[in-house]
């Protein structure tokens, strides 16, 4: 069920490069990325936002090691800025939550080969992998520990309440 990363990127990024570089508004990639990830995984009463636990750093680290992924982040965040600044000169990060969500929905609903959709699909999965690898987030789901060394004794009984 895992999305293969390399093939879709190689197939879809290059043809779109020329078309998307134009919209650059000099917004540092990390600021846009943080705002984007915090819209995907926002803080709520129970658990922190993506950036609070460093999900953006995980993606940026991956981009450091992988040129194609770096390009994807660059083009994807530029696309977000283009959308944000289409009406007024307001950066993506400065938009209200609702407007940020609307922009992300555009990416989610775009054709499978569109840059913004490829960016959305890959970064969402990577954000999930980073966010849900954090024991602090596990605790909010009632997931007590990594499988070892403790295992799950008491496994034959009903679980304790998950929202303590």
């Amino acid at each position: 069920m895992r999305l293969g990363l390399c093939a879709p990127l190689t197939a879809h990024v290059h043809p779109l490069v020329a078309a998307t570089v134009v919209g650059d508004k000099n917004q540092p990639i990390s600021i846009t990325l943080r705002a984007y990830l915090d819209t995907l995984l926002p803080a709520d009463d129970i658990s922190p936002s993506a950036s609070t636990i460093g999900v953006h750093k995980h993606l940026l680290k991956k981009a450091q090691d992988d040129a194609l992924y770096r390009r994807l982040l660059l083009l994807g965040t530029r696309w977000l800025e283009q959308q944000a600044q289409a009406r007024d000169p307001v950066s993506f990060a400065a938009l209200g939550e609702e407007r940020r969500e609307q922009i992300i929905m555009l990416a989610e609903d775009a054709p499978a080969t569109a840059l913004e959709r490829v960016f959305f699909e890959h970064t969402r999965v990577d954000a999930f992998e980073s966010y849900y690898s954090d024991p602090a987030i596990w605790a909010t789901l009632g997931y007590p520990n990594a499988p070892q060394p403790l295992g799950f004794v008491g496994y034959g009984s009903a679980p304790r309440s998950t929202q303590s």
Binding site: M1, T39, L40, L41, P42, D44, I46, S47, E101, I104, R124, V125, F128, E129, Y131, Y132, S133, I137, W138, T140, L141, G142, Y143, T162, Q163
Partner: peptide, 22 residues
């Protein structure tokens, strides 16, 4: 684990996604 739930069971994103995960 939680990652497989996020990807295959719950999906989505945003506040609703997080609530559905819990």
């Amino acid at each position: 684990g939680p990652i497989s739930y996020a990807r295959r069971v719950v999906g989505g994103w945003g506040k609703q996604h997080k609530a559905a995960m819990r």
